[in-house]
Design a protein around this nucleic acid. Structure first.
Lengths: 350, 350
DNA sequence: CTGATTATTGTACACGTTTGCATCTCCATA
DNA sequence: TATGGAGATGCAAACGTGTACAATAATCAG
């Protein structure tokens, strides 16, 4: 017969939360406990009769397979950790929305770990992920110590770094081709006939954002044009306001600005409009990066680069679901999105 | 002696992921397995000597307590589910950022479940949460069937509904006082001297958004003023553009518009500026709701209502961490944030 | 030095699953 | 009818932990 006694040794039964177990369903349906398990395991062998009985009893009792126990047994948690800071930033939020959506569609469960604040928290985040035997950790901001990464690997966890390209063996490093985008931005400003070109960047920029700046400056050097560099503040709209104000306040006011981020670009445009009465693209050409939702708002209509989000996620999922993925670095082209913040080409193409 | 043999019955050892267990650490440190467990259990009794040995060995071997197993045993997962749709929407993103942050600080782990798309997905989300024995589910959008909620309760899960106030026993229902806010909005427009007052709302609005509309209209009725209602589209910036265009295109163009959402308000302001050459607050007064980041962008400078996010989250956490919380409905005042999208008071206060 | 108290360690069981193997039933084929 | 084979079911062993209880070692009061 079934052993119905729970908590044999513990007197205070009430302290434990009573859950509906497979055994309860089994007893209710008059079948064995394994039959219940098999009913909920795809591909397992159960007769239609017992399956029906089990499903009915499960429905009545409100039974759900305990995935903690199941994960423990099969050593596959189905959980993927998303590690990110400043989640409420437009581009980041979009990325997380898309990622969680796609992970879900792939049958995975997303664990969100917010690392705003100290950089140190990436470490804690990964430790937490390891504790929960996460199948993979997708890091959207920051990067872990190599030693910590090894701990991840030794626990069978996969590591994806988005927007990082440092040397990181064993992981997938993926992101847009920031340098190329910077280059394209410069060409576009030149073709628009801009004479005094500037760059607006945050002083606390991420690696990938600095890359954009480098690409832009390198292209400028190649073309033999001087670039006015204004670098200050955080990667935010407010910083854009300040940067824009500083730039437009100069005697030699620039007529074309590459902003390393859409948020900064929005700030620059607003500075131009609200504080100097200048309009894009007539008085000033502005290019951003990220293609956040606000970029297509009518007040900005910002020419920018679209992050290759879909492709990044495609690759992410594919890489995470292969058995023994090998270290890989993927750089995807960022699509140039023409809107109306850049003067129409005055200089014909060569 | 220790039993080092794993997978006694399974030949293909390699198929299972090899993990570092407490037993491995115990063997390495020359102590018993329970000592390892005790080392990582706060308040357990271990001598400093063994604790030190255990910690050292754990460090070397890269051991982390398996929280799946631990949760299973103690029937406390430490996981809280966040159920939300349209995560990349400014207000939603901010809410999630703050919630995940605070949950983390409280030692909880957040599981993000994206329910964009069908409404049906709230059900799937909760079923998933139950499977993982989530301690609580915080629902930011949508609401579950009562029967499903019962299943949640019977599995010891707590339920929080944010921005819902339907009759839902056993759960915490919390959100801003939308009606009162609508009322305040009307008063503010009247005091600004607006003569032709309008309301712009989405046709697919949530319950709480509809409440704002109701509060506004009720107050208008009380004051004996007519309100022009434009209701169409989704709750988005684009809808705001359309709504604004439709309103401002009328013969009897309104001079004061309450938008049930900041996103809509931004759209309305842009419609006014970009399509009609009208400026706030001189030609048009606009009030929004949510106090999203864009509301304080210089291009909008939007007078709006701040969601009582902090208080909501405070209450959430407090409620979720009490043993047997009783059903509760909490309505918190939304703070009116004065910026510069509403004409300065022309009508003196009575 | 003895008995009592306390701090530490060990033993064994439970948490709720999945799965290899063995058993059993049933039906078709030779 | 005997022989296989397929399909369903049961048994028992894991997965990696926490904890009540017992046993042992250490400390202390008298």
């Amino acid at each position: 017969m079934y052993n119905n006694q729970r908590n044999l040794m513990s007197e205070k039964v009430s302290s434990r939360k009573q859950q509906v177990r497979a055994e309860d369903v089994a007893r209710h349906a008059g079948v064995s406990r394994v039959s219940v398990s098999r009913t909920f395991t795809p591909g397992a062998s159960v007769s239609d009769a017992t399956r029906a009985k089990v499903l009915k009893s499960a429905e009545i009792l409100g039974y759900r397979v305990n995935r903690l126990a199941s994960s423990l047994n099969r050593s596959e948690s189905g959980i993927v950790a998303l590690v990110a800071a400043e989640i409420d930033t437009p581009h980041r939020a979009a990325m997380i929305a898309e990622l969680s959506e796609r992970l879900q569609a792939a049958g995975k469960v997303t664990m969100l770990i917010n690392t705003s604040g100290y950089e140190e928290r990436v470490k804690d985040a990964l430790l937490q992920a390891i504790s929960f035997r996460t199948e993979a950790a997708i890091i959207l901001s920051g990067a872990p110590d190599p030693s910590l990464a090894d701990t991840c690997f030794s626990n069978g966890m996969k590591l994806v770094l988005i927007n990082r390209e440092e040397d990181f063996p064993g992981s997938l490093q993926i992101g847009p081709d920031n340098r190329a985008a910077g280059k394209t931005a410069l060409k576009a400003l030149l073709r628009a006939g801009c004479k005094r070109i500037a760059l607006a960047n945050s002083a606390n920029a991420t690696w990938s954002i600095v890359e954009r700046q480098k690409g832009f400056l390198a292209a400028a050097e190649d073309a033999g044009v001087d670039v006015l560099c204004e670098v200050d503040g955080f990667t935010s709209y407010q910083a854009g306001l300040e940067l824009g104000t500083a730039l437009l306040d100069r005697e030699d006011r620039p007529d074309g600005i590459f902003c390393t981020t859409d948020l900064i670009a929005c700030g620059v445009i607003d500075a131009a409009r609200q504080r100097f009465g200048l309009r894009t693209p007539d008085d000033l050409s502005v290019i951003g990066f990220d293609n956040i939702q606000q970029a297509e708002w009518e007040g900005y209509d910002l020419t920018t680069f679209a992050q290759p989000t879909d492709q990044i996620i495609d690759k992410c999922l594919e890489w995470c679901t292969t058995e023994q993925p090998s270290s890989e670095t993927v750089k995807l082209p960022a699509k140039f999105v023409w809107r109306n913040s850049v003067q129409k080409a005055r200089v014909p193409m060569k």
